[in-house]
């Protein structure tokens, strides 16, 4: 896809939106005592980007978001966790979309689940403890539910954005 002015502006807007949503999530954390559990609001932006401006641009968007949010609200360790989550989630969403077997809803569920799974895998290595694996079922449940809700929202946003972009 050639980047024209409209698309550059759109990508910039999405990054800003992802940044703000990550901030909202810092303000309203899903604090249930489990490390890595997140609502994943910023995932809305990644899903919308994947369906509107293509895989390459949405990967760039994910990386820029992780770096920006990590530098602003977190520390290096937190950046590492969210980078692992974001990359694994992006990879799964990319293949989920390419398989054509899932709609935006299923793709978003994959993203939500694997974001949490990616974070916990890095945490297992960083903490050198396998105890964290016990949290996996709960994280999968949270990821599935939040992914489904985000899938519905992203579907609604995509419909409107596609009209604006064309």
């Amino acid at each position: 896809m050639k980047l024209n002015t409209k698309k550059v502006a759109y990508l910039g807007m999405l990054i800003a939106l992802a940044f703000v949503l990550s901030y909202v999530e810092v303000l309203l954390p899903l604090n249930i005592g489990i490390p890595g559990a997140k609502i994943g609001l910023a995932n809305i932006v990644t899903v919308v980007a994947l369906y509107t401006i293509g895989a390459k641009n949405s990967l760039i968007l994910s990386i820029v978001r992780v770096i920006l949010v990590g530098l602003t609200f977190g520390n290096f360790a937190m950046m590492l966790y969210s980078a692992a989550g974001a990359l694994l989630s992006f990879t799964m969403m990319y293949f989920g979309r390419r398989s054509k077997k899932l709609s935006i809803m299923g793709v978003s569920v994959l993203g939500g689940v694997f974001h949490n799974v990616g974070q916990i895998i890095v945490a297992i290595f960083a903490m050198e403890t396998s105890q964290l694996i016990y949290y996996l079922p709960v994280l999968v449940i949270i990821g599935t539910i939040s992914g489904a809700v985000i899938g519905i929202l992203s579907g609604m946003i995509c419909k409107r954005v596609k009209v604006a972009l064309s």
Binding site: L102, S103, G106, V109, L110, V140, I141, T144
Partner: peptide
């Protein structure tokens, strides 16, 4: 929403709940 989405969501929830219990 496709049928596969429901299978994915249902499958994930059932497996996760079973393991949890």
């Amino acid at each position: 929403m496709k049928k596969n989405d429901l299978i994915l969501i249902g499958g994930l929830l059932i497996i996760a709940f079973t393991i949890l219990v």
